[in-house]
């Protein structure tokens, strides 16, 4: 028990100090790296709090891909955006105003943290009713999967996940609308190329495994999609321009695969006289795997696109077909 307590205190202290350090520094690159470390410690905390599904997603998406995105933004100097808007502080009155503002916001934030913690303590003291978790385990047998988190994500609250895929699609389309991607990286040296040669198949295999295992153990479409995206990012870093990522129309198909499959299943069931996304228990497992596979493709395609930061440009020499 005391060992656990020491671990808890260590985890909490490193979370808080990493977050403070990441937010306090003015060096953008340093800030991002500290934030990635924060994400990894957070993944440990999820593991400690018995949330392995979340730990996997945090490590892959929260720390991994967010970090990669932020690092490329630093490389492209994108963090300078919005900075020029603030006029330099000259007059003493303005500087005083700034200090007052900083103190006010800081005090308000401290008050907010205190209020939230106090309310949370009250909520814990009411001995939380566990009705929803009980309802999940009562209906787990007919949900088509045995991992309760997957059951919630793809059956009981599948509609949330459908909208979440729509959010992902929206972000990708918004990035698309801003213009073409930046030019690719230079070709990597033989060492990295050799590394990529075995790392990429391993990542793809891992993605497939995570997708399959999600039905009964920690894992699922999102972790698998992120791993697949990681494979593409490695290839990209190795200098492959298109990384097997389709351009033009096929890319659109990959991006909307998740939303389309979800809608097709949901509306198909509606036409057959069942509720929207109301899987018949006998088919539930198969339908969930079908949706998850499509979702994994969509997530991987979108995350890679986000990493590229725009519409992929075809390799030189390959003329873009009319789109």
């Amino acid at each position: 028990m005391t060992a656990m307590l020491v671990l808890d205190i260590l985890l909490v202290l490193s979370l808080l100090s990493l977050a403070t350090a990441a937010l306090a520094t003015n060096d953008a690159r340093r800030s991002v790296i500290l934030f990635m470390a924060f994400g990894l410690v957070l993944a440990l905390a999820w593991g400690r709090l018995l949330a392995p599904d979340v730990a996997l997603a945090e490590a892959a998406i929260g720390a991994g891909l967010s970090g990669a995105l932020l690092l490329t933004a630093v490389r492209d100097q994108a963090h300078r955006a919005l900075r020029s808007s603030r006029k330099p502080v000259h007059e003493r009155g303005r500087a005083n105003l700034r200090v007052t503002l900083e103190w006010t916001v800081t005090l308000l934030c401290i008050a907010l943290a205190g209020l939230l913690a106090w309310a949370l303590a009250q909520a814990f003291d009411r001995a939380p009713k566990d009705t929803l978790a009980q309802a999940v385990s009562a209906n787990l047998a007919i949900s088509g999967v045995s991992n309760p988190v997957t059951a919630v994500l793809l059956n009981f609250r599948a509609y949330d996940t459908l909208l979440e895929l729509a959010v992902l699609l929206t972000a990708a389309l918004g990035i698309f609308a801003l213009g073409p991607a930046r030019p690719g990286h230079r070709a990597a040296g033989p060492v990295f190329d050799g590394l990529a040669r075995w790392l990429v198949p391993a990542l793809i295999l891992t993605a497939g495994y995570l997708l399959w295992v999600g039905a009964h153990a920690p894992g699922g479409a999102f972790q698998a999609g992120a791993t697949l995206a990681a494979a593409a990012v490695v290839l990209r870093l190795a200098g492959r321009r298109s990384v097997g990522l389709p351009t033009g129309h096929t890319l659109h198909v990959a991006m909307v695969a998740g939303v389309s499959m979800f809608l097709a299943v949901g509306l198909g069931l509606l036409v057959l006289g069942r509720p929207f996304l109301g899987y018949p228990p006998a088919w539930a497992g198969g339908l969930i795997l079908l949706i998850e596979t499509a979702a994994m493709l969509a997530i991987a395609a979108t995350l890679v696109l986000a990493f590229f930061g725009g519409r992929p440009t075809p390799a030189p020499g390959v003329a873009e077909k009319t789109s």
């Binding site: 929803l132 599948a158 509720p275």
Partner: peptide, 13 residues
Amino acid sequence: SYEIGGWSAGLGI
């Protein structure tokens, strides 16, 4: 009102 997936509100949406 409409219960998505046929799950009662609370467990479902």
